[in-house]
Design a binder for these strands. Sequence first.
DNA 1: TGCGTTTTTGG
DNA 2: CAAAAACGC
Length: 474
Amino acid sequence: MVASRFKHIVWFRNDLRIYDNPALFRAAEEQEGVLAVYFICHEMLENHVTASVRIDFIRRHLLQLNNDLAELNIPLVVISTDKTKEIIPQLKKLIDKYQVEGLFLNAEYPIDEFNRDKQVADELRKQEIVVKRSHDRVIIPPGMIRNGKGEPYKVFTAFKKNWLQQARALALEPLKKPKTQPPHGATVITDAEINKQFKTLEQRDLSKLWPAGEKEAAKRLKAFIKNHIHDYDTGRDFPDLDGTSQLSPYLAIGSISPRQCIAAALHANRGELDSGNAGVTTWIGELIWRDFYQHVVVDFPDVCKYKAMQKHTEAFPWRYDKSLFNAWCDGETGIPIVDAAMLQLKDTGWMHNRLRMVVAMFLTKNLQIDWRMGERYFMTQLIDGDFAANNGGWQWSASTGTDAAPYFRIFNPVSQSQRFDADGAFIRRYLPALAKVPAKVIHSPPPTPGYSLPIVDLSLSRKETIALFGALKS
DNA sequence: TGCGTTTTTGG
DNA sequence: CAAAAACGC
Ligand SMILES: Cc1cc2nc3c(=O)[nH]c(=O)nc-3n(C[C@H](O)[C@H](O)[C@H](O)COP(=O)(O)OP(=O)(O)OC[C@H]3O[C@@H](n4cnc5c(N)ncnc54)[C@H](O)[C@@H]3O)c2cc1C
């Protein structure tokens, strides 16, 4: 039996992968023993209304991660806690038990996670423990993209210009495989023990739709680059096609890094970031949007406290009508594209980006319901739920965000449906009651058995919303 | 990655 | 008069 001593702990969170994981990579460099830990913190999961499909996705990822880490001689410890404050004593216990000297983690930006990590770091540093924080969730770390006055950008196009300039100077290469550690004597956690840490197991089995693990994520990235990225600029708008990567669950949970994504995209575009194939550059543009919203959370932490980015929009008279809201959640608005999209979300834990914009605009601009209610409901359902991207998407749709859709630029869900689901194939996928309705009228169907009439007048509510926004003084 | 309405254009 | 352009929100 080899003595169990680990020089470093890697605390895994939304970075459940071995490759291109800077915290793990750095901890492993010295090859003096690494212990991996994952906390299932029920207080945090509940406060953040984490979707049950997401929790199950975490569980399935931990099973994979455990195997992958074992090959590097890194044991994984999975600890379930009721309260966030239990994490510090739990870490201290591990530190004492294994004579640990350093804690390595990848940064998380939303305020609760940020504060938690700061408290942990402050506390451990008092005990002479080295705490090293890396940035893996973004391609360019927060704080790096600044205008001439040293301030963060509020407009995406300006952010993007600066981002591209800096990106050109970076290698954008994923890290090499982390070093294998010396053999250790600690017992390795079993699948059953990992499963046992999860209070209730998700009933729905989404393991076919969303298989867990970084191998699966890498496979999907490869397939997307091979089959779809070159037509992404045109294909991404049609919800019935597989025109997008569907990598968001993997990026959110961190079984793939954005740097691995951009490296693969560059490889398919002769290394060009913003020239060459339009599909590739458009996709890179989405990865930059992703960085932008992560940076917004760091630079404007008020967004984590239910605040609108544009202060004057706080005065908008949002409605809180329970029955209209429930109809939206349950896909019973009588607007086929909205209903089909909401059922896709419920069924699969994912929704096409075009449809996220359509349903978010419908909730905020036609039903005039507070965007925060939609934001919250999305988090309860999404397998790819990410605070920054979700808040950014909602504030964009509600016209409360920085560089949001202007308040008067309101989508008409029926015209969106006609443009992007012209033959109604996506609608029919989720609304069997409309199976026989012809394409010409399916977007706004005549009274049909088993399908309800619209719960709101699109034209009237649009006019009203524009007037209400117009009356706000900015 | 907006829509609805009005005005202009070319015949 | 239909289509395109322009305009305001
Ligand atoms: C109201 C609303 C809520 C959203 N909530 C989330 C969320 O909780 N989590 C989430 O990851 N995305 C969210 N998005 C952004 C976007 O809809 C999804 O990232 C995208 O649909 C995921 O599909 P994909 O992986 O096939 O994307 P692709 O089109 O293949 O794009 C590649 C990656 O880029 C990132 N990305 C793409 N578009 C955006 C965007 N607009 N903003 C930020 N990142 C983007 C994602 O990580 C995505 O996986 C939201 C958008 C809206 C309008």
